[in-house]
Amino acid sequence: MKLAVKFCLALLTVSLIFQLFAIISTPLSSIPLSTSPGFEYGVFGYCNTNIHKCSSRKIGYSLEFAPHPMPPNKVPTLPSGLKYSVTKLLVVHPLSFAITLTLYVLIFLMSHQQLANSPMFLLSIALFSLPTFLICLLSFLVDLLVFSSDLCWPGWLMLPATIVIAVCCSLLWNLRSTVSIKNYETLQSSRANTIETHSMHDWRDRTRIPSIIRSDDHSKPLLEPELTYTSTID
């Protein structure tokens, strides 16, 4: 149980680090999410390396340093041929990071014994892991769509980050079912177990002893039903 939690935390740490590379890309740092001749692109903006200037840091690129389109009456496009407005979709990156961080905190809370044994808490964590996976996958797909073949390594790192979350997700669902079985068994064993089982020795001895002596409870037949009845079918 504890090992599973530790393993989940380790996986999510890896995923968070991978996602962090994309978040801190250009213009926050010099790591580009995508490059084209004279330009470097990131989640929060892009930089024109020819004039060494970067756009304002926000979701969705502004057109201030965009390359001049050919012919001039057209709107400027990204190297993949998409319009700049599509870059608003890059919002999924910080969203994915935030959701993964929340999942990390929730799993960290599982190290508390009482919470770790609560099926409802585990179920909610397992359910929460599903949108985490979906949004992380969406971030990778958005990167692929916006930058396509010009995508750099921080963008490709989103794929292993997604796979890692998928593994964590399946682990959480398995953990939930294990805890569910464990709790059920504890509950059952705490109640008086009404079903009696007998060794086969008693059963066989019973057949050897004459039927008059067989009056005590211990020598009851193995599968005697509580009620025996006769009825007729109308």
Binding site: V86, L141, L145
Partner: peptide, 28 residues
Amino acid sequence: PRHWGTLPPFVYLFRIALSTSYACTITS
């Protein structure tokens, strides 16, 4: 397209994400 320009690519990606999730589940 100025206001709703991001919806079509988002929906397209959402569909792809759903089918990828389906593929992941079946493969696993």
